[in-house]
Design a binder for these strands. Structure first.
Lengths: 114, 114
DNA sequence: CCTGTATATGCCTTGACGCGCATATGCTCC
DNA sequence: GGAGCATATGCGCGTCAAGGCATATACAGG
């Protein structure tokens, strides 16, 4: 689990990050908001913390987690070179994002009959 | 292998994408440039193709692959909400990226100053 | 057709990771 | 200092994806 990309490959971790984007939260708040078992939350937070995505401060028995920007900026940095490329394709994107809201079924049937 | 994030979690696939960002290339060119076995290249290209990251056209026996923008834009879309949050932390980023230059092989030559 | 080249696919093994569950650690307050 | 809450960690299991290798398909030219 070294690269930032592997870290954000996990849906629950992305959910945690998005939740923390609004403001900082305790473990319990994350647990309730995202409806995942507490050990799961703690484990993901550990991964995120060790990768530098979040940091925590202690408030009595609670631990409050907040975002750290660097790793996500690293993702953005990798993404940047592609931006030039897609400026030409802007409207194709909008159609794409619209389409994939409900369909997660990524099954393509490239049967070539003619 | 459903989400775009899992797709780009694989280093070889990111390498292929980055290579294709410059221009389109055949499978053999990718194979030689990135020095990976041909079946590996084909398998990753299959994944990328089915996820909509690339498309191919046939040129005699060759298959020429080129980028499609939508999935990467999807990543950018997920990343967008965090951007507001970073703006405060800009210089912390530069330090971070500077530090990880030699570990990841990402090229960066930004000089910090104060 | 047959050979060589370019690309794709199938099978197998291996290793990593996420989860559930139980349990441990830590802190607060009475 | 003991009870109770908040969070962390250890363990075992199932799953799934990546790599290596062999092989299959497709196409071009002699």
């Amino acid at each position: 689990m070294e690269s930032v990309f592997e870290i954000i490959a996990e849906p629950n971790r992305r959910a945690i990050l998005s939740f923390l984007a609004s403001s900082q939260h305790s473990v319990g708040e994350i647990e309730r908001q995202l409806r995942m078992p507490q050990p799961t939350v703690s484990k993901h937070l550990r991964v995120l913390r060790e990768a530098g995505f979040v940091e925590s401060t202690v408030d009595a028995q609670r631990r409050v987690y907040r975002l750290k920007p660097e790793p996500l900026q690293e993702v953005a940095a990798w993404l940047a070179p592609f931006r030039r490329f897609w400026s030409a394709h802007v409207d194709a994107l909008e159609r794409h994002l619209d389409r994939m809201d409900q369909s997660t079924g990524t099954k393509r049937k490239t049967r070539r009959r003619r």
